[in-house]
Each structure stands twice: as C-alpha cells, then as structure tokens.
C-alpha cells in the first residue's frame, strides 16, 4: 500500500514537472531592438538606428507524420537617421512556412518593411534577416541577424 502510494506520488510529480515544462514553452517571442544600426544600401537614404520589437509567433500541426510550421514575423519599430536626425517608423509583417518531418524547423528568412519618414526625408525599405528555430513542443528562438535599408531602385 505504502509502495503504491509512493509510485502514485512519483507519477504525480512527473506529471506536474511535465506540465510545468510545457507551460514554459511559448509560441511567440519578442526580439527587442534597442539602438541597433541598419546598414544603408540606398543611395538616397541614410544609416538609421532602430528601436522596438520584432514579434515572432508560430503554430504547428501534424498531418500524416509531416509537421507544418506556420510562422509570422511582425515588426513595430522607430528609427532615427544618423545623418539628418529624421524620424522613421516601420510596422509590417510577413508569413513563412516549413513542412518537414523534423521535430523542429530552422529557417533564416527576410522581413521587408516600409521605413516611413515622418518628415521630408526619403522613405526606404528595411530588410531584416531573422533566424528562427521552432519545434513541436512550442519552443521558439529568434534572432535578428542583420538590418539593412534599401531603396528598391
């Protein structure tokens, strides 16, 4: 009787630990950018310093053994021009997906956003390279690998 109670206690503890581990897993992650520089590749643009967040979220489903990872990245940023002091804002999102039979997906993708000047300065396109790793357990990691501004012409 005492032995079965111990087993029940151990099983309950393992169950709680498992639940706690799962609860710690998250389907979204915010990458905070504070004072990050963007390299300018736009002839009429300028280098900018970025502040704000890139929000990465995902959902995973399984279909006949194939994991389907649907990932969304969205930025909400302000920027300051390093030549003119002009203010810019960026807020955009894009979707990505990865289908494979791996328990995780490891992708590096681009998020392109309009970098809108809040005055007379020329607008640019902000290109952010994002390295994202997600898995079937709800774990997610994301880094902004690079920030670049382009003109598109």
């Amino acid at each position: 009787m005492l032995r079965s109670s111990k087993y029940a206690l151990i099983a309950a503890s393992l169950l709680l630990l498992s639940a706690a581990s799962f609860a710690q897993a998250s389907n979204s992650y915010d990458v905070n950018l504070s004072g990050e520089s963007a390299v300018n590749q736009c002839s009429v643009g300028e280098p900018v310093v970025l502040s704000g967040n890139v929000h990465v979220s995902y959902a995973v489903t399984n279909d006949n053994g194939v994991n389907h990872y649907a990932i969304t990245a969205a930025d909400d940023l302000t920027a300051v021009g390093q030549k003119t002091g002009a203010a810019y804002v960026a807020g955009d999102s894009d979707d990505y997906s990865s289908n494979n039979d791996d328990p995780s997906a490891d992708v590096t993708v681009e998020l392109k956003s309009d970098l809108k000047a809040q005055g007379a300065a020329a607008g640019m396109t902000l290109v952010q390279a994002l390295h994202i790793v997600v898995d079937t357990m709800g774990n997610i990691s994301a880094q902004v690998v690079s920030n670049t501004t382009t003109c598109g012409n």
Binding site: D95, Y96, S98, N99, N100, D101, D106, V107, T108, E110
Partner: peptide
C-alpha cells in the same frame, strides 16, 4: 535570401517577400 537547416533533403518551404 532565405536559408533552411533540415534533416535530410526533403522539405517544403514558403517565404514571404515583397517586390516594389
């Protein structure tokens, strides 16, 4: 520019992008 790391070669990927 996009990259992936997979076990094996088989994969299906979709990458959002913009063309202006």
């Amino acid at each position: 520019h996009n990259e992936t790391n997979t076990k094996g070669i088989a994969q299906e990927q979709s990458f959002g992008t913009k063309i202006k």
